[in-house]
Design a binder for these strands. Sequence first.
DNA 1: GTCTATAGTCGGATAGAC
DNA 2: GTCTATCCGACTATAGAC
Lengths: 227, 227
Amino acid sequence: MNTITNPPRGDQTRKALIAAALDVFGRTGFDGASTRALARAAGVNQALIGYHFGGKRGLYLAVFENIAEQMQAHMAPTVEGIDHQLNELPLDDGERRERALQLLLTLFDAFIDMLAGQASAHWTPLVLREQQDPTEAFDLIYDSLIGRLLSLITRLVAISSGMEEGSEACRIRTLMILGHAMVFRIARGFTKRYLQWEELTPAHVDAIKEQFRHSVESQFSERVPQS
Amino acid sequence: MNTITNPPRGDQTRKALIAAALDVFGRTGFDGASTRALARAAGVNQALIGYHFGGKRGLYLAVFENIAEQMQAHMAPTVEGIDHQLNELPLDDGERRERALQLLLTLFDAFIDMLAGQASAHWTPLVLREQQDPTEAFDLIYDSLIGRLLSLITRLVAISSGMEEGSEACRIRTLMILGHAMVFRIARGFTKRYLQWEELTPAHVDAIKEQFRHSVESQFSERVPQS
DNA sequence: GTCTATAGTCGGATAGAC
DNA sequence: GTCTATCCGACTATAGAC
């Protein structure tokens, strides 16, 4: 009986391949990564990609499942906490808005931490590429987290700004705020060249959070006029 | 004497290849685009890529030169106009800040128009990919426009917010505002799925501009506190 | 400048031994 | 589950006729 103590060898191979593929796909893109390079990076035989994932494309999809899991693991506690607190907001309009704003900032603190993490440097290029021409792989991460996150942000934006939750304006503002936080990962070239940040150190992350906070607080310090 | 009236045949070939490559590279990436596909899309012989550009990589660089030219052509008039008006700002602090804010909004109106244009849909994926791992091709567009644009935005942000122009905080805010405007192009997957915008219609662009204006105006409606 | 033809390389997938 | 060996298609680049 070694069903528990002895991890099957195949599992190790799968894990190694996914971890290596996250890196290699991230650096060279799907077409730029050869199965030989993927196998070498994982330290396994090239034929095992076919055996375990059915082929290169299968491995690619497995990588996205892994990304979705990483995102989930990082954001789930915060999202759940906020979801819960949303049910017990104060009734007074001013307090209510102030509270929602704080929840919004809490959510983005976690979000920025996730983006700043070492791991996200690998998957950002992949997700970015998928965005331009979304396939099944994009659905994987959208459905598991992004969609829910967007809804939650919209709700917080609506309350703290006084905008109507279902309105297009409110959704646009939601995406803009997302842009605020993501620009440092997405526009990496600009960030590197213009801020001369070679990589995101904790000090940089703090500076980003601080400016993000200033920006969002001033945006919603008074009710946003409905157009 | 037909040096003027008769355009050399080679020029047509080069133009056709660059135009086609902009599209094909944009959709499939550098590695995903084969020289055969590039030639077919341009309606020319595959061997001509080698003849005119020295190879696939040479064509890729030529595409980036073309992108830089397109950006320049679109932004140059606005940038120059603003540069000029910056020299004759009113001395009164309040008026000065208000004026700089209006210039900032003018600049971004042009910038958003550029991003919303049909052409940018093709080159956005290319630029995005270059950003993740900048090569010589990225320098081409950074040096020709982006760098100057960032400096100009920073200056306008500094004046209209009261932040110190050279400060890191001011530069961070500059990039964040850029993120505001770029998110709809860059996070295309989110935009499509969440706003259910299949493409950017003029009405969508107007809505983006309006929210952008609201956001920036409220951010700088009072002096930003220095940390 | 443009074409055909091909050399030379590398890709993903898989058959079959262990 | 893992390996070696290999098939076969697709690729880039280029030689050489026109």
